[in-house]
Amino acid sequence: MTGKTIGIMGAMPQEIDGVTALLNNPVRRVIGMRSYTSGTINGINTVVVFSRWGKVAAAATAATLIHVFNVDEIIFTGVAGAIDHSLNVGDIVIAKRLYQHDMDARPLMQQFEVPLLGKTFFECDDSKLNKIREAISPLIIDGILKDRIGADVLAQFGISTPNLHIGDIASGDQFFANNEQKATLQAALPTILCVEMEGAAVAQVCFEHKVAFTIIRTISDAADEQSHIDFPRFIEEVSSKYSVCIIKQLYNTN
């Protein structure tokens, strides 16, 4: 990563605040109602920004990082709702392929296909995914998350030993809060592990500008009728600390 400029995005201010605090010599700049903070982490030029919710907000933020700050890579970290039943609250998902589940221009083209690109998903290459997995695995294997957050706090959310997954993520401008939504998505895209509102939009912008991207999500809920319960507290006490730990591992800081 040396010599590059990295953009770090998140859709929740609580998750980004902790990452912003990692910056050395921070400089803040407001563009388009967003606050971009530049500095260095472990000697690497970095720009951190709270993107806000949704695909449009995420795409606009990613485009600004690319055109104004000239980033070479964008990392998005934040929460997601579990779609695959094997996932549990506290698990980490690294995106392999990202779909826009609300993209549907039928009968002009097949469902999920992005107009003019001829693509139904955006993909991260295997070599990059393996490097990310190696960097993040110690959070679980070495118990770093438990040490940083506290086993008692994790236990309050039913988290004992979180797992790390690599797989498909679906993005769309819709908060999943019932099993009917989950069943519909699973029927259409059976490989999806989790759902959120920004990742595929960031991936599309990066694809179109030939910029590397990494989407990493923490499972906050089961995307069902209980998905709203304790969500703000989970963001504050768990996922915000996950984000800091993940960035530290990726930057190889202590």
Rank of each mutant, 00 (worst) to 15 (best):
T5S: 12
M9K: 14
G10E: 03
A11K: 03
M12P: 02
E15T: 00
D17H: 09
T20A: 12
T20M: 07
T20G: 11
A21M: 08
A21T: 11
L22V: 02
L22F: 01
R28N: 06
M33L: 02
S35M: 02
S35R: 07
Y36N: 05
T40I: 06
N45I: 05
T46E: 13
V47E: 12
W53I: 04
A58Y: 05
A58D: 01
A59N: 03
A59H: 06
A60E: 10
I66Y: 13
I66K: 11
N70G: 04
N70R: 09
V71D: 12
E73L: 01
F76W: 13
F76I: 09
G78E: 08
G78P: 03
A82L: 04
D84Q: 06
V89Q: 10
V93N: 09
A95Q: 04
K96C: 00
L98D: 01
Q100W: 11
D102K: 00
A105P: 03
P107D: 08
L108A: 13
Q111F: 10
E113C: 07
V114N: 09
V114T: 14
P115L: 05
L116M: 14
G118Q: 11
E123M: 13
E123G: 07
C124S: 12
D125Q: 15
K128I: 00
L129R: 14
N130W: 04
N130I: 11
K131D: 08
R133I: 02
R133G: 01
E134T: 11
S137E: 14
I141N: 15
D142V: 04
D142E: 14
G143C: 11
I144C: 02
K146P: 04
D152S: 15
D152N: 14
S160M: 12
L164R: 07
L164W: 05
I166F: 10
G167P: 08
D168Y: 12
S171Y: 03
G172T: 01
A177D: 11
N179R: 12
E180F: 04
T184Q: 14
Q186M: 15
Q186K: 14
A188R: 13
L189I: 09
T191Q: 13
L193A: 05
L193Q: 11
V195P: 04
E196N: 01
E198P: 03
G199A: 07
V202G: 02
Q204A: 02
V205T: 15
C206G: 08
V211P: 06
A212Y: 04
I216C: 09
R217W: 00
S220D: 01
D221E: 10
D224L: 02
E225A: 05
S227H: 05
F231V: 01
P232Q: 05
V244T: 09
C245M: 12
I247H: 12
K248C: 09
K248Q: 15
Q249Y: 15
Q249F: 14
Q249P: 07
Y251I: 02
Y251G: 01
N252Q: 13
